[in-house]
């Protein structure tokens, strides 16, 4: 814990709504404690803005412990800011120095329209899931859980893939604004487990079709997504997706 406070110079993207053009505004924030989280620093700025009668900066946030995936802004060119495997809410101001200039931008992905300031519309991710990211099993009496053994290594790997929080950092970081890591994580999660086998081929085909139609870019295997992923999902997932998809298209019966 440190008691030295900092003054920071922020350059924040302000945009009234998705129809109007945006621009950067400059703000000076004083008395920033190193123990603050990045969002708490923005809260403090918003309180200042409110007192000056100015429009508060809109940003998404909820759990503030890195699991809900709601928050996410690009900080000095890095989605979720500096530091490995952190979300914006987990980023603490001790990562910055007194007098630092910080550029804060929203996710810049055509498929994620800016709603206002730093808040973007990520419903495109829901649409990818909607296209097949599920197992079609109805509520009711499911079979006894232990009747279907799953090897520990497979379950663990599926869990690695299922850890995705859908924050959108992968697409934001990608040079091509591609959602491939997101799609790969969900397709991998379900393709690895025995429960996901029945719809495996259709799932990969349908989810990729949806993803392509939503206006995301194409993957060029650069790996910026895995660097930005707060849950450490690896681009080996994308290789798995590629073979899942290849298998799906070449051997499908539909």
């Amino acid at each position: 814990m440190s008691s030295n406070t900092m003054t920071l110079y922020l350059q924040v993207w302000r945009q009234k709504n998705s129809n109007e053009a945006g621009a950067f505004s400059n703000y000076e924030v004083a008395n920033v404690s190193p123990d603050m989280s990045f969002l708490e620093m923005l809260d403090m700025l918003n309180e200042d803005l409110a007192r000056q009668g100015l429009d508060p900066i809109q940003y998404d946030h909820d759990c503030r412990e890195g699991i809900c995936g709601a928050c996410g802004v690009v900080i000095n060119g890095e989605p979720h800011g500096p530091g490995k495997q952190t979300t914006t809410c987990e980023l603490h101001m001790r990562n910055f120095k007194n007098g630092d200039a910080i550029v804060i931008e929203p996710w810049r992905v055509k498929a994620f329209a800016v709603l206002k300031d730093l808040a973007v519309d990520r419903s495109a991710y829901d649409k990818i899931i909607q296209a097949g990211g599920f197992i079609k099993v109805n509520y009711g009496n499911a079979p006894e859980a232990n009747s279907l053994p799953v090897g520990k290594d497979v379950a663990d790997l599926a869990m690695d893939m299922a850890a995705c929080i859908g924050c959108g950092a992968c697409a934001a970081a990608c040079k091509n604004a591609s959602a491939m890591l997101f799609a790969a994580a969900k397709i991998s999660h379900l393709a690895l487990l025995p429960q996901g086998q029945v719809e495996r081929k259709k799932r990969a085909a349908n989810m990729i079709k949806a993803m392509d139609e939503l206006g995301f870019g194409n993957c060029t295997n650069q790996g910026l997504c895995e660097d930005a992923c707060p849950k450490g999902i690896n681009i080996n997932a994308i290789a798995r997706l590629n073979r899942e998809y290849l298998d799906s298209i070449l051997t499908c019966n539909f």
Binding site: V74, G77, V109, K110, G217
Partner: peptide
């Protein structure tokens, strides 16, 4: 084709970009 689509997928580019 890939690259043209990729450029279109991000109409506004980042003001600042961390480079490795």
């Amino acid at each position: 084709k890939t690259n043209v689509e990729n450029w279109r997928a991000r109409p506004i580019s980042y003001h600042k970009r961390a480079t490795k």
